[in-house]
Amino acid sequence: MSDIQQELRKTARELLESGEVGYIIGWGKGRFANQTHPIFVKDPAKVDELVWDDYCLSTLAKYTQDDKYPEKKIGICVRGCDSRAVNRLIQDHQLKREDVYLIGIPCSGKLDPETNEPAKKCVECAHRNPVVYDVLLGSPVEEVPQPERFKEVEELEAMTPDERYNYWADVYDKCIRCYACRNVCPACNCRECYTDQYRVGWQGKQNNRAENQIFGITRAYHVGDRCIECGECQRVCPMGLPLMKLNRKMLKDINNLFGAYEAGLDTETKPALGHYETNDVEEFM
């Protein structure tokens, strides 16, 4: 792992010194050993702040949305999840491929800082190697197939409607509406979120079950066909809500109804709700 860190710093220094990129988005160390945070390195002298260790959990691609018209390319460290997020944003026309320089890093999973066990989102990861990059550090790691991708969803589907309603109502009751799930999500890239347009009346600002239900369902539905399954929403949720069970339900139905689908693997496959086939499943006749 430290070899990759060395290589990363070397690559970063070269890119910054040559002026190929304006800055590099990577991970830096926090106060405690189990903390990292995204850092933005401009100065070649500071590349040693970049780290690659067991706690580099944050996905980085979303940060390109803060700098939509960069003077120079933005260098981004991309693992499988970050690279799919980049594809996602390119496909949504929120990012231009030529505006980013992707430093690919194969990733064999990170640790949960609380438990030091493999992080849930990484255990469930099906694409550990970046799917798009300009340079690859180290050699590709073996992919882990995920036959149980929809297991949690199926468990819920086996319940009665009332049980399911109560399960989700309990989840939404816990939500504090901090919007971390929305803000971290690379599929959530509306210029202004509907929740912030509260004068329009989509969403009340009060925290109660009905409003939280509306937020929870709408968030999941909005990202439904574009979710890259990075699991960041669930990781950042301070209340530990099982948000991926919502996202994966959408993906499961998309797979069943419209064929095998994974978002962000390339920029050509259209998202399920962004196109149609004239011979789609018909249930409304």
């Binding site: 049980e163 399911r164 309603y165 539905y221 139905d253 709700l273 149609y276 004239t278 018909e282 249930e283």
Partner: peptide, 26 residues
């Protein structure tokens, strides 16, 4: 055609959240 895809998913998603699919029809 977009409606069809959208509400095929919506109906299932509401059912997943505990709403009887007969309450939402297209």
């Amino acid at each position: 055609y977009f409606t069809r895809r959208r509400f095929l998913l919506m109906q299932r998603f509401l059912e997943y959240n505990g709403i009887d699919p007969r309450r939402f029809q297209a």
